[in-house]
């Protein structure tokens, strides 16, 4: 579905992505693990176009996203859903307005059906009567659920999750991870999840990649990944077990 070839991104002298290659399979959950500061968020931002890589290719439906002009790229973006690290809900809007935002902006749904559609996606993310609440009145976990509802209301082909459980307690983290898995099963979407949380990866992943030194140094099906012989991967896995 998405194939990344030789992706490179540097900030000054610091090379964050160093000719990175990655293939994201359609209809699967791919998790990218890695230590902090290894460029996991830079990778996701490069794909969704909020950062411009220095070189390389990001192929989606056999088209290179990096060669596209903004109007063409925006059409592709309509096939993306993104759950940002802190949910990135609009402070000035209530939950209903936040969730409805993309469908209202692009007139994807008839005006009189918007309310029902918002309710439907809020039910999918297991949120009750919160439409009138503002982001400042929500807990971290609820914000993530609202962010996910906003991401899926456009029926995206692929959903990107940037550290979906960061800052959440273990119980809420588990419920969010389970939600991602359920969501994928219900909507049959492709998911790319960036995280450093091994428990989340173990629970939801079909494929796991390990990002280190700006490259994916290990990529395999979940079961095989956990049997990796790579010393760097083993160190990460063992550190998590120890923790």
């Amino acid at each position: 579905m998405i194939e990344i070839k030789n992706l490179r991104k540097a900030f000054g002298n610091q090379v964050v992505l160093n000719n990175l290659d990655l293939k994201i399979e359609a209809g699967k959950i791919t998790v990218i693990l890695g230590k902090s500061g290894q460029g996991k968020s830079v990778l996701i931002k490069s794909i969704i176009g909020t950062l411009k890589p220095d070189s390389g290719k990001i192929m989606f439906d056999n088209k290179n996203l990096l060669d596209m002009k903004l109007p063409e790229f925006n059409k592709i973006r309509m096939k993306f859903g993104v759950l940002f690290q802190e949910a990135a809900l609009f402070d000035s809007m209530n939950v209903f307005e936040n969730v409805a935002f993309p469908v209202v902006e692009h007139k994807l749904i008839n005006k009189k059906n918007i309310k029902d559609e918002v309710r439907r996606v809020l039910d999918l993310v297991e949120l009750g009567d919160v439409e009138e609440k503002y982001p400042s009145e929500l807990s971290g976990g609820m914000k993530k659920r609202v962010g996910l509802a906003r991401a899926i209301i456009t029926k995206p082909q692929i959903i990107f999750f940037d550290e979906p459980t960061t800052g959440l307690d273990p119980i809420v983290s588990y419920s969010i991870a389970k939600l991602i898995k359920d969501m994928k099963a219900k909507l049959n979407t492709t998911c790319l999840v960036i995280t450093h949380d091994l428990d989340v990866a173990n629970l939801i992943a079909d494929f796991i990649g390990f990002l280190d030194g700006g490259k994916i140094i290990e990529f395999d099906e979940k079961e095989n990944f956990f049997r990796s012989n790579s010393p760097i991967v083993r160190e990460f896995l063992d550190a998590f077990k120890g923790g």
Partner: peptide
């Protein structure tokens, strides 16, 4: 500025707005 650092501007861009 607050919208920028909390990725609200990025979210808008990603939603093709």
């Amino acid at each position: 500025g607050t919208m920028k650092i909390t990725e609200q501007i990025d979210a808008m861009e990603v939603m093709a707005v």
